[in-house]
Design a binder for these strands. Structure first.
Length: 666
RNA sequence: GGCUACGUAGCUCAGCUGGUUAGAGCAUAGCAUUCAUAAUGCUAGGGUCGUUGGUUCAAGUCCAACCGUAGCUACCA
């Protein structure tokens, strides 16, 4: 028997469970249920990720303490996951004694071994609220495209990433005051010291190949120290032997896996160290989304290894969920809460649909509304449940619900049973799409069999009644095998089927033993068909702004802009007075531009199309009010306009004769 | 630009370490059937496997370049 510990990433405690969370927890739960069905010990723990500025601010906004807030959401999360049959053994919280204990322990170990250093960091500070501002809590104009009201890490409008200090006219989202720059000492994990360790670690098979490639890219690019401290006020654990320093939420979040498990161990009398000591022969599996692989595949194993814990055996990374091709995000209002979903559909539909699409790789999964309806109706109702429904009627009417004493088609039965091991292998590697595909092929075989035998014809002939019993018993037995194969994916339907089959819970072992001379329970409708209208109603219901964290984001902009928007761009005629190759750069030219009242320097990536000499003296158009951009080779004070696909096909714009430097383009 | 993926029927995708006429589901058309939740079965149309080269007796499957898409990233201003 294998001993396996499994986790899903910790949902953050400032919002409700939504379809994105469910993708991950369903994927994990399918794997967990499969392992248990195979007879292994499989402990599945999770927790709420409670710390950080976001929780603190939300609590304040709602006028409650952080503890009250996270307690409420904790209860809500547990209820939601339960409804979807997510079988956590423990759903705990990072705001717990155990977590504080392990956070301190790990930190101290790292500190004692010289893996922690401090450095001064300059950050925006809200003078009114007397606190440093996280990137998300600063808003201002994008330094690149000038879009107003953008957060401090990247621009929603042009996608640029930048430092919060680069924002133009920054404003604190908390107090609307103007932030000032201030220094603070921060604690860093010396990640570069773990480079050699990580190089080996990522090739030990603990991640999917494409993830290992990605990690390798990051490692080769050079690791940087990881800032694990935040200044007070901060909702989190104080860092030992410091004043007003707290662990950054991402430091203690993964430690929450240990804490939740420890909490479970205490209650269930299991030795924590069996699973977490260096040479443990137990298994540890993490299921995460691809957005957090750096935390789980670089930081987390490094931190564990260098504080004497074992590293995870495997990190299973899944892609992101999109809805009808559009990224799910709060700001766009395209996401569906677990609770909203439950108002309209059975949780098994979602489990089945996602199961039918999940593979062992990390590609994104699109939730297609039509696809969803088609698969549920076609596969589950039309094919699978149909087998039971069409077989059961004859048995109930004519044979008192009793199955025949032997199999009518042993060969066909064997064909189904023989699939068990390959299906198990696909579950093991997380390729549930393949499981579902194969099971549906088998369901087709079964429907073909029933169509060929046509028991509704035979039943008219009194001499052939026994044949009918045999055929329908085959139908029921095959149905039982199929539902057994899908049990980890659709536990609700399985449970109702088990009740009808009246032979106890299905296990991987007993599903290959046919039921003979067995009396069935009463058959009720197992599953209902769904329609697209209901789906659309769900989307409408979900479109109402859910009660969550982030400040309301601006509506997504239409393609058309107003004249005012255009006028914000100060386009000027400029004459190139000087042009030089930039040493060390492949694509840049340094241009000195006469813009009428003064000259300025612009770095432009047009070297592949123009020689410096042929540019001097030419007139062109420049964006004059662009925020100066610090680049590797100097500061660029504007942008010259050019068109073309790139390479040698770049064409500089030029005004007609008569235009003088400094003239505004309107 | 770099990196990592991906590009197979209208749509969603299978095609494992290269090997007979490239498969499935949905959709479309026709037929059969009525036991079953307008469920099921059979049949048909539809693909120059992104493009161009190359390796090989043999390539959707390997290699290269290019085109396109996505994510990350940069000397993209």
């Amino acid at each position: 028997m294998r001993r396996i510990l499994v986790t899903s990433a910790l949902p953050y405690a400032n919002g409700s469970v939504h379809l994105g969370h469910l993708l991950e927890h369903i994927q994990t739960d399918i794997w967990v249920r499969f392992q248990r069905m195979r007879g292994h010990q499989c402990i599945y723990v999770c927790a709420d990720d409670t710390h950080g500025t976001a929780t603190m601010l939300l609590a304040e906004q709602e006028g409650v303490s952080e503890e009250e807030l996270i307690k409420r959401l904790h209860a809500e999360h547990i209820a939601d996951f339960n409804q979807f049959h997510i079988s956590h053994d423990n759903y705990y919280s990072t705001h717990s004694e155990e977590n504080q204990y392990y956070s301190n322990l790990i930190y101290t170990q790292l500190m004692d071994r010289g893996y922690i250093y401090t450095e001064n960091v300059e950050q925006l500070f809200d003078p009114e609220r007397k606190m440093f501002l996280a990137d998300r809590n600063v808003r201002g104009e994008c330094p690149r495209c000038g879009a107003p009201d953008q957060p401090g890490d990247n621009c929603d409008s042009c996608g640029a990433t930048y430092d919060a200090r680069e924002l133009k006219n920054p404003v604190s989202a908390l107090s609307n005051s103007t932030p000032i720059l201030r220094n603070s000492e921060h604690y860093f994990v010396d990640l570069p010291k773990f480079t050699e360790f990580l190089k080996e670690y990522i090739h030990n098979g603990s991640q999917q190949p494409e993830i290992a490639n990605k990690l390798n890219e990051w490692i080769e690019g050079g690791l940087r120290g990881w800032d694990i401290s935040r200044d007070a006020p901060y909702f989190g654990f104080p860092i030992p032997d410091t004043v007003d320093k707290f662990f950054y939420v991402w430091m203690d979040a993964p430690i929450g896996y240990l804490a939740s498990f420890k909490n479970w161990c205490t209650k269930n009398n299991v030795d924590f160290d069996d699973f977490w000591r260096r040479d443990s022969d137990c298994e540890v599996h993490h299921f995460i989304g691809k957005d957090i692989i750096n935390f789980h595949c670089l930081f987390w194993p490094s931190v564990l290894h260098h504080s004497d814990f074992r590293t995870p055996l495997k990190v299973h990374v899944h892609g992101m969920l999109t809805m009808d091709g559009v990224a799910m995000s709060k700001s766009r209002g395209t996401f569906v809460l677990a609770r909203t979903y439950l108002d309209f559909f059975d949780p098994d539909y979602l489990r089945y649909y996602l199961g039918a699409r999940l593979t062992s790789n990390s590609s994104d999964i699109d939730f297609g509304s039509e696809d969803f309806v088609t698969r549920v109706n076609g596969d589950l109702v039309g094919k699978l449940v149909n087998i039971a429904a069409r077989s059961e009627g004859f048995l109930a009417k004519n044979f008192d619900n009793k199955l025949s004493s032997e199999l009518a088609e042993p060969a066909l039965w064997q064909e189904f049973v023989d699939e068990a091991e390959s299906i198990a292998a696909w579950y093991e590697e997380g390729d549930t799409r393949r499981v579902v595909r194969r099971v549906m092929e088998l369901a087709d075989r079964c429907n073909q069999y029933l169509a060929n035998k046509a028991p509704w014809q035979l039943i008219k002939d009194a001499d052939r009644r026994d044949e009918v019993q045999g055929i329908c018993s085959m139908g029921i037995n095959l149905y039982r095998t199929l539902i057994g194969f899908l049990k980890p994916i659709i536990p609700g339907l399985t449970e109702r089927s088990e009740e009808f089959l009246n032979a106890g819970p299905l296990t991987w072992e007993n599903l290959t033993q046919p039921l003979l001379s067995h009396r069935l329970g009463t058959f009720g409708r197992l599953l209902n068909r769904i329609d697209l209208k209901t789906f659309n109603k769900m989307i409408e219901a979900g479109a109402e702004k859910p009660l969550t964290d982030d400040a309301a984001e601006p509506e997504s902009k239409s393609e058309d802009i107003q004249i005012d928007d255009f006028l914000k761009v100060d386009l000027r005629v400029a004459r190139i007075v000087q042009a030089d190759v930039v040493d060390g750069a492949d694509k840049l030219l340094r241009l000195r531009l006469d813009v009428g009242d003064h000259e300025r320097t612009v770095l432009s990536g047009i070297r592949s199309a123009y020689k410096p000499d042929e540019l001097i003296g030419r007139s062109t158009v420049v964006v004059a009010n662009l925020q100066p951009r610090k680049m590797k080779f100097g500061v660029s004070e504007g942008m010259v306009l050019a068109a073309g696909p790139g390479g040698s096909d770049i064409f500089l714009l030029a005004p007609d004769e008569g235009a003088e430097p400094g003239m505004r383009v309107t």
